[in-house]
Nucleic acid binder design. Structure first.
Length: 322
DNA sequence: GCATGTCAAGTTGTG
DNA sequence: CACAACTTGACATGC
């Protein structure tokens, strides 16, 4: 059965994630920095508990955790490690309770590092910063048992094949806890499903298929063919397939634009009905958009019981295979 | 209080 | 050549 995924934030539900700017934190002395950051992190872990409960209560099956969940964690000047925070124990304990909640309700968690995280750049400092960001996100992914860390192909730098070979080289060298969670997603400018499929096959990692990006940045594949390719890439690993959907705010008349508040049901691919798959809904109205889509698709609430568990598709990462 | 400008980071395409 | 857009606004400041 289809599992709808909420991305990072809520519209109506009073659940907010806090942040801080480096500009604010920088002038503080180190202990004061850590006190401030610890407070934000602890608040955010408690908000995550509330978020996960709300996701399940609303009948959804998946949640994407935002990249700045631990604010400024990888910042070059004011960055920190969990162990340095005064509330480290409580933060970790709360994250363990998130994992327990996930297991109880058979939910799925994912991460989507933002556009600064890319493994195709010719600039070593860009790659180094990206690896640091992946280290951070996999630490969180392990604590809450998220099985997906999804990134884009990155830039082209005037030579797509060279960029792709750098991408392959970097992914091949990733530590197994990252590699086993890493996925590639087609984007709206540079890398299509056709571009990424050979890379995914070579590296044996799955493809996240974003149908909106595919429509903005098409290749030779139909939606049906791209859907099939995505399904195969997950099923060969025994894992539940992953899609993204969104609707354009200003219609399809031209370039990719901002996301609309809701999903136009006409944009929902016919090929996706009835699949056992996760669909992240990227829409400004957040949970309201998921509720509307869920109704229009006549989806029942995510069951989250043992019957669901028996469907048999992995949404947690198995022990890293050496 | 509330409005508004600002915030770590990369890359591409538009105006 | 500056700037918006990208998966996502919240914070800090000034009126």
């Amino acid at each position: 059965m289809l599992r709808l995924g909420l991305c990072c934030l809520f519209n109506q539900a009073p659940i907010r994630f806090r942040s801080a700017t480096a500009k604010f934190v920088r002038p503080l002395d180190r202990p004061a920095q850590l006190v401030k950051l610890s407070e934000l992190c602890l608040d955010n872990t408690r908000s995550l508990v509330a978020a996960v409960e709300e996701v399940y209560r609303l009948g959804f099956g998946s949640f994407r955790v935002s990249s700045p969940f631990l604010p400024l964690y990888t910042h070059p000047e004011v960055g920190y490690h969990l162990e340095e925070l005064p509330d480290a124990r409580e933060i970790k304990a709360t994250l363990r309770s998130v994992k327990a909640l996930k297991e109880k309700h058979q939910l799925r968690f994912s991460f989507h590092p933002d556009q600064f995280t890319l493994l195709s750049s010719p600039r070593p400092e860009v790659t180094a910063a990206s690896l640091k960001e992946l280290d951070y996100q996999v630490m969180l992914a392990e604590l809450i048992d998220a099985d997906v860390i999804n990134i884009h192909g990155g830039g082209v730098y005037g030579d797509k094949q060279s960029a792709l070979s750098r991408l392959v080289k970097e992914i091949s060298a990733l530590p197994e806890p990252i590699r086993s969670r890493l996925t590639l997603e087609n984007d709206d400018r540079s890398y299509t499903v056709e571009d990424l499929l050979p890379v995914c096959e070579q590296l044996d990692i799955p493809l996240v298929y974003d149908v909106h990006h595919h429509r903005c940045n098409p290749d030779e594949l139909t939606v049906a063919a791209a859907t099939d390719a995505c399904l195969r890439s997950w099923r060969r690993l025994g894992r539940e397939p992953y899609f993204h959907i969104s609707s354009p705010k200003h219609g399809w008349n031209g370039k990719p634009g901002p996301h609309a508040d809701f999903i136009d049901i006409a944009d929902f691919p016919a090929e996706w009905h009835g699949l056992d798959a996760t669909i992240d809904v990227e829409a400004k109205a957040k949970e309201l958009a998921l509720l509307k889509l869920k109704k229009e698709l006549s989806l029942p609430p995510w069951p989250g019981d043992e019957a669901a568990a028996k469907r048999g598709c992995a949404t947690s990462t198995p022990k890293d295979a050496g």
